[in-house]
Nucleic acid binder design. Structure first.
Lengths: 193, 193
DNA sequence: ACCTGAACACCGTTCAAGT
DNA sequence: ACCTGAACACCGTTCAAGT
């Protein structure tokens, strides 16, 4: 990649991060190009689709989540690992409002730039779920797809102004449905002293 | 209302029902006006905001749900009533994809044309929840807002192609978190023979 | 009273023309 | 190789002009 092209690429990404954080995943691409000081065609050259841009924005977070899943698989008890990872996935998707809808759409669209990342995410979650199920710590009538859907639903609730303030509580309710033999209060972000 | 105005009103509503059912709550208002054979200003006159149009589309279903809640309060056991009503609320919101996001936004916006309907809905749900809680059939660490949020999340999952096929199962998972002392299999749409 | 549609300020997407 | 921005076909919203 030529030096000027690389600079444009990184500039667009940086501006997009700010704009998408403020206006959500449906932010105007024109606006991003304008603020980045590049032509609209340049944005499209580097990011042929909106999903490609979102994927670039989310990549770092996704990589972290994948690493964290691997780490948790050996470092924590199966149920703590699952809950902790789930919370992080939801927090990651919550960085940019509206992105969770794009992720759900990408699950069904093999050609989406977000598809691979989402499948990787689901696979990592499935492993943590299976491990918890094997030890009788998670309900056995659900699979990785269900887990991914529930995580997405919680991320979506975090995007909605009317439910965002209760996001933690809603998380604990759903977590208590996934995990077995655990009190709902076990899933609070700050555990009681 | 003049006869011609009334005819326009009803015509718009009928066309909107078809278009919104097919293209979701973000369907083009221009398109609806065009198909209804009226000027764009006429649509805006009758429905000053998109929410006003959605409210008109949903009113019948909302009224049914309110009536059903009242009926269930005397006709069914508290837990069956709650689960049955919840399923109907979700089905109602699922008639037009994307409408659940508008409903969530309306909860926070007193001036929204959907606000009153949503509050009514939440109140009806709260009564059914409280009744179940009083008999020890529903978890006591949640309120009507939580119930509304969980119902909205399930409706949203029903809108997503990747989770829609598992909507029933996801419903049973969340229902099992709300109700106490009930097996998840109790919440299937078609009970086992 | 009610209706119409042009006008305005925006989009996403493509692509010929430039360097 | 890469960039630009005009061009096209759409939006939502408003409002002067018509009947």
């Amino acid at each position: 990649m030529r030096a000027d092209a690389k600079k444009n690429y990184e500039n667009i990404l940086e501006v997009a991060s700010v704009v998408v954080a403020k206006h959500g995943a449906d932010a105007s691409l024109r606006d991003i190009a304008r603020r980045a000081g590049v032509g609209l065609g340049t944005l499209y050259r580097h990011f042929p689709t909106r999903e490609a841009l979102l994927e670039a924005l989310l990549r770092a977070g996704f990589d972290e989540l994948t690493a964290k899943a691997r780490e948790l698989e050996t470092a924590s008890s199966p149920d703590d690992a699952l809950v902790s990872w789930l919370r992080d996935v939801i927090a990651c998707a919550g960085n940019y409002q509206g992105v969770v809808a794009a992720m759900m759409a990408a699950m069904e669209d093999t050609k989406s730039a977000l598809h691979a990342s989402c499948v990787t995410m689901r696979t990592a979650g499935t492993r943590l779920l299976t491990r918890a199920q094997a030890e009788g710590l998670a309900r056995t009538d659900m699979d990785g797809d269900d887990l991914f859907s529930l995580a997405a639903a919680l991320a979506w609730l975090g995007d909605q102004p009317s439910s965002a303030p209760r996001a933690e509580h809603l998380f604990s309710i759903i977590a208590s449905a996934i995990l077995t033999n655990r009190a709902s209060s076990d899933f609070r972000a700050q555990p009681p002293l």
